[in-house]
Nucleic acid binder design. Structure first.
Lengths: 202, 202
DNA sequence: AATAACTGCAACATACATGAATCATTTAGG
DNA sequence: CCTAAATGATTCATGTATGTTGCAGTTATT
């Protein structure tokens, strides 16, 4: 936030490497949560040593990924106007933003935390934002479920499932929209149905 | 199947150990899919060497767990009369049976397969049984979703989520039933809603 | 009671992931 | 163009998981 005008400090090169490593890690760890740093380095097209230079330890890399995830969720929550927009609209927008960011949910949700450390690893602010959204959905009668925690879990799970759905899946083809929009529609419809919302439908 | 009358062959002792190892593995691996064999052995109250005597390799243990999982699903499908009973009744029964068996879904669903080997690791017979159930649910108008694969994924995910739900969760307390029955009711209601079923219920 | 199987304990070998360090080479930026 | 930073390649150290083996003691089965 304050090193923008210190030319001889962090080379643009390095930042690109960092980004490439994190991207590769997101992809590789999503497929295999116990993948070695070497495989991540390969996927990033870099040497393993470089990974260690950018991230002092494996845990540091995981922490960075979690931080990035939280950042993106937080940004999505803000842009979707979760607190002020009509809750259904906010849900749509939030979902769309998250999909477009290609967030690698799964790995982070389960792995980065210590084996013992229960509870996700979403920052309290993110959790609060999501809870606010579901509380508003409940109060406006869009869903019957009153427990924000249950809604949250279901939402995150559905994000993962719909994200993983192959583009050719029948369920997506049945949607009126296409591409990301089809996934968003499917997710919202499924979520509302699961939480006891109105059948709605076309 | 043919060694029942060969007294000096497999001691009853050993079979108990095998069962204890598999039980412990199910528990431990559910909490941490990359847990070492030593931790599993400890949880089973046995020495690590014993684990190696019963299972020639870690992979062999995982395979055995997967086989056991498939066995139990298959048994559940048969007992629930998935092919003949009214589909809603079959769904209830199947869900109840699976919950009571305390199946450790998650570990198996994701871990035991090779990092590359996509697709779950349910036997085709199990998949067929589940698909038949969902097809019948669709044909009888209970659900709107027509894609059995999508139904299956949602069902398995919900099994996991509802299974993990703490007993004190508000969502469970809101159910009319109690204990396992409450979980079954919640799961069925949520699943039907998610798949576009009738709102039913109050 | 005798035999064979099972177990715990310990030592050992192997493989792999992690992390630090060095050095030569390339590359970004003033 | 010149300097400092970044990278790749290599080596080394360490820790841990895996798998094997031998032996002594225990337990099941006949």
């Amino acid at each position: 936030m304050d090193e923008t005008n210190r030319p001889r400090r962090v080379r643009a090169d390095a930042e690109r490497s960092t980004a490439r490593i994190m991207d590769a890690a997101t992809t590789v760890l999503a497929a295999d949560p116990s993948a070695s740093l070497e495989r991540i380095a390969d996927a990033a097209g870099l040497a393993r040593a470089t990974v260690h230079r950018r991230f002092s330890s494996r845990q540091a890399l995981l922490d960075a990924l979690v931080a990035q995830l939280n950042e993106r969720y937080l940004k999505g929550l803000a842009e979707a106007r979760v607190q002020t927009a009509p809750p259904l609209v906010a849900l749509h927008r939030l979902t769309e933003l998250i999909f477009e960011l290609k967030v690698g949910h799964r790995f982070a949700m389960e792995l980065a935390a210590d084996p013992e450390g229960r509870e996700p690893l979403l920052e309290p602010e993110v959790v609060d934002g999501l809870d606010a959204l579901f509380t508003r959905l409940h109060e406006s009668g869009e869903i019957a479920a009153a427990d924000p925690a249950w809604c949250r879990r279901l939402y995150l799970v559905l994000l993962h499932e719909v994200h993983q759905l192959p583009a050719a899946a029948p369920e997506l083809a049945a949607e009126a929209a296409e591409g990301v929009a089809a996934r968003v529609d499917l997710l919202v419809r499924t979520l509302l149905g699961a939480l006891g919302g109105t059948p709605a439908r076309r």
